[in-house]
């Protein structure tokens, strides 16, 4: 029995179908990310859960209770917004204590709870500051504490990191995940940043044009993308074309090289294949590897990883290799043989 259930959700603004049909079951204590480009409907789904938008169709239930038509202030939900959502006229402590005050929690109890929350977010000494005296990262931590203080049933995070500097973004997302796991609170996290979604989620929902294209663990989403959109949106991808020789056995031909895919194919003459850059190598590793002659076009040294761009059979190919201090990266213009294992090929649908 899932804790938070969204079933058949639809939302249209006038003639615009922003969310076409959306189903999702979230287990208690699970951290689920909604990932997608802007305009894909992920924020609208979140706002429907919060109660700021009423679904055109479908239901939302939390812990067995149908909340579809409850007002936001009756749902007992915590939410962190993109930025600047702290009440500017209240101190940090008053911000965190706001929900408790509304609930009618006694002053002494509220004081203890606020102190606990400030310790949890690592800012125990800043209770008397005003929001304008805090950095962006500190403000978002306080916003998290404010959302968590009344012990909500569900926590909603609406791109809480998007207005922050890159460095703080990485450290704060890990911290948020830690706090979430410590409290075991059911969380929905909306982001357009795939790295963010993959790194801290239990499950990821990739959304496209109002529909959930794929729901799965970060590992599944990245390694077994079900649609072209998911494959392209999540991570970098090389695409190849192949001719199907025998659909039943998965026999195909890439550039005249025959190979066999691990799974049978639906029948068809041509298929699209994809390869992650880390599945492509500069040297042949096993007998089963397929090799393609290629020319290096550019080399980006990024630290631990080196991203190499090459042209193989007239198409661009990207490959990642780890940096090795004893092996300098290839030179631009060098002729190489790129190799990959057929089991790493991703068959694209649609």
């Amino acid at each position: 029995m899932s804790f938070l259930t969204l079933s058949g959700l639809q939302k249209s603004f006038g003639p615009n179908n922003v969310v076409k049909s959306f189903d999702l079951d979230v287990q208690k204590g699970e951290f689920v990310s909604l990932l997608g480009p802007s305009g894909c409907g992920k924020t609208t789904v979140l706002r429907m859960v919060a109660g700021f938008e009423t679904p055109s169709k479908g239901t939302i239930s939390i812990d067995g209770q149908d909340v579809t038509h409850l007002r936001p202030n009756q749902r007992n939900i915590g939410m962190v917004f993109q930025a600047y959502a702290l009440f500017p006229n209240l101190t940090v402590a008053q911000n965190v204590g706001f929900g408790l005050k509304i609930k009618g929690v006694s002053a002494s109890e509220s004081k203890d709870r606020v102190a606990d929350m400030l310790r949890l977010i690592g800012l125990p000494a800043l209770g008397d500051r005003y929001p304008f005296q805090l950095s962006g990262g500190q403000q978002q931590r306080v916003a998290l504490a404010r959302a968590l203080a009344p012990q909500p049933r569900v926590l909603l995070l609406d791109e809480p990191l998007s207005a922050l500097d890159a460095k703080i973004r990485v450290s704060l997302r890990l911290e948020m995940r830690e706090i979430q796991q410590k409290l075991g609170i059911t969380t929905i996290f909306v982001t357009h940043d795939q790295e963010e979604a993959l790194s801290i989620s239990d499950r990821v929902v990739v959304m496209n044009a109002g529909i959930a294209d794929q729901v799965g663990t970060p590992f599944e989403i990245y390694n077994q993308p079900k649609t072209c959109f998911v494959a392209n949106f999540v991570g970098t991808l090389n695409t190849l074309e192949a001719t199907v020789k025998d659909a039943a056995t998965g026999r195909i031909s890439i550039n005249g090289i025959l190979t066999t895919l691990p799974a049978p194919l639906a029948s068809g003459a041509a298929i699209g294949l994809a390869l992650r850059p880390e599945s492509v190598h500069l040297t042949q590793r096993t007998e089963a590897d397929i090799t393609l002659p290629a020319t290096i076009t550019s080399v980006h040294f990024m630290g631990s990883v080196i991203r190499v761009q090459a042209t193989a059979a007239g198409k661009p190919m990207a490959l990642d290799t780890f940096n090795r201090p004893d092996t300098p990266p290839p030179l631009i213009g060098a002729a190489v043989n790129l190799s990959f294992h057929p089991r790493d090929l991703i068959v694209l649908q649609g």
């Binding site: 202030n73 917004f81 006229n89 404010r146």
Partner: peptide
Amino acid sequence: EWREASEVLGATHVQYWRMIALPV
């Protein structure tokens, strides 16, 4: 966001105006 944040924290419209909007 101030109005929405106060709403999810349980505040009514009147409470929002009294505790946030008017003081601001």
